[in-house]
Design a protein around this nucleic acid. Structure first.
Lengths: 128, 128
DNA sequence: CTACTTGTTCTACGTTTCGTAGAAAACCAT
DNA sequence: ATGGTTTTCTACGAAACGTAGAACAAGTAG
């Protein structure tokens, strides 16, 4: 129960980008703007979603435990439960966790990180 | 295009476990045995799948690039394209790749790795 | 070569997830 | 109360997945 659909991801991206909690309408507008900006030269029209669509997605994200909403305020305010970095790191652990030979996987994994990232890792592991 | 269904994963697990290529029938038997072993004390009946079911799943896995089949031999022989470790490591990169701030994610990630794994990582990063 | 056995492909259906949104209900301000 | 704003309910179509029958292909025994 981890993977997100396209729209779900787009919404999470917005929630992760803005530090403040947002309303469904705000998100709808931001999504419209995003898809417009994408248009570029060729086709790819920018279509506006209905607010109900955004609300449905928000509810689903809430059920998945990724989004939290304040029900007190009238336009409910939505925000990500955890930061994008935390969430991604958690996902990585989920992927890794299912393997019985974690160390072998880690070996393959760090075999293909950039040098700068390797440096970061060394630093983080060093100060143990 | 990365996530697997329950049965798809069970099949991959078998292919990853056995070093040799297997036939659809062999896999069907192994799956039956597995689900039987799962039965335990309470309910959870062990049901036998039809071979066609296994074949369908194998075809889908082939289309996804996870499984390779020898069409020459009569009972076709199926095997995983890459090892479980390689595949898992690749998945981890996919998860990480979508993040704009990879280093921050990595920081969170190694924050929750066992000490022995941290040691392994240090070793691997050291000999660079 | 023909009948039988075994394996593979085609086609299909039910379920779940996700994008999408209308209709209706709930809420707030005037 | 009346109307605008927001949320909930309900629903539909597409895709993925579990599941498998029907039909087809390819060896095997006579």
């Amino acid at each position: 129960m981890a993977s997100l659909g396209e729209l779900e991801r787009a919404v999470m991206d917005l929630l992760w980008a803005g530090q403040e909690a947002a309303t469904a309408n705000t998100l709808r507008d931001l999504l419209a703007r995003d898809s417009e900006a994408e248009g570029g030269s060729a086709g790819h029209q920018g279509k506006d979603l209905a607010v109900t669509t955004v609300l449905t997605v928000l509810s689903r994200l809430e059920k998945k435990g990724l989004v939290e909403r304040e029900r007190g305020t009238r336009p409910h305010r939505y925000q990500a439960v955890s930061s994008r970095e935390d969430h991604t790191a958690e996902l990585m652990h989920e992927v890794l966790g299912s393997a019985p030979d974690r160390e072998a996987v880690l070996a393959r994994f760090i075999g293909s990180v950039t040098e700068s990232e390797a440096a970061t890792l060394r630093k983080l592991l060093g100060e143990h």
